Measured scan of single mutants.
Amino acid sequence: KSAVKALFDYKAQREDELTFTKSAIIQNVEKQDGGWWRGDYGGKKQLWFPSNYVEEMI
Rank of each mutant, 00 (worst) to 15 (best):
A3L: 13
L18P: 01
W48K: 10
V29W: 02
Y10R: 03
W48L: 13
F8M: 13
N52R: 11
Q46M: 07
G39N: 00
Q46P: 03
V54L: 03
E17V: 02
S51K: 11
D40Y: 01
A12R: 04
F49C: 04
V54H: 00
D9V: 01
S23V: 06
V4N: 04
G35E: 10
G42E: 10
T19P: 04
G43D: 12
E15W: 12
E30S: 14
V4C: 15
T19M: 03
A3V: 15
A12V: 02
V54N: 04
D40G: 01
Y53T: 09
K22T: 10
Q46R: 10
S2T: 15
Y41H: 09
D9Q: 06
E55V: 14
F49W: 01
A6V: 05
Q13I: 10
K22F: 07
E56I: 10
G39H: 00
V54M: 03
K1Q: 13
T19E: 09
G42M: 11
R14F: 09
I25W: 08
W48I: 05
Q32D: 10
G43W: 06
S23F: 15
A6M: 02
S23P: 00
N28F: 06
G34S: 08
D40I: 00
W48R: 11
D16G: 11
I25K: 04
F49V: 02
S51R: 10
K1H: 13
K22I: 09
K44M: 14
F20R: 00
V4F: 12
Q46C: 09
S23I: 03
S2V: 15
D9E: 09
L47Q: 09
G39S: 01
E56L: 09
D40H: 03
D16N: 12
F8T: 08
V4R: 02
Q46V: 03
K5L: 12
Q32I: 15
E55T: 13
S23D: 15
Q46Y: 09
G39F: 02
V54G: 03
K44L: 12
E17G: 04
K45D: 06
G34E: 07
N52T: 12
K5S: 06
E15P: 13
E30V: 15
T19L: 03
Q27G: 08
Y10M: 00
N28E: 06
N52G: 11
S2L: 15
I26S: 00
E30I: 15
R14S: 13
D40E: 02
K11C: 15
Q27C: 15
Q32S: 14
K1T: 14
Q13T: 12
W36T: 03
E56T: 09
W37E: 00
I25E: 06
K5Q: 10
E15G: 09
Y10V: 00
V29G: 02
I26V: 05
T19G: 06
G39K: 00
Q32G: 12
F8D: 07
E55M: 12
Q13C: 15
D40R: 01
F20W: 02
G34K: 07
P50N: 06
K1W: 11
K11P: 05
G35C: 14
G43K: 07
G35H: 09
G43N: 10
I25R: 03
K45C: 13
T21D: 10
P50V: 02
A24M: 06
Q46F: 07
K44P: 03
Q13S: 10
S23N: 15
E30M: 14
I26G: 00
G34T: 07
L47C: 15
L18Q: 01
N52Y: 10
A24G: 08
P50I: 04
E55Y: 09
S51H: 07
Q32H: 15
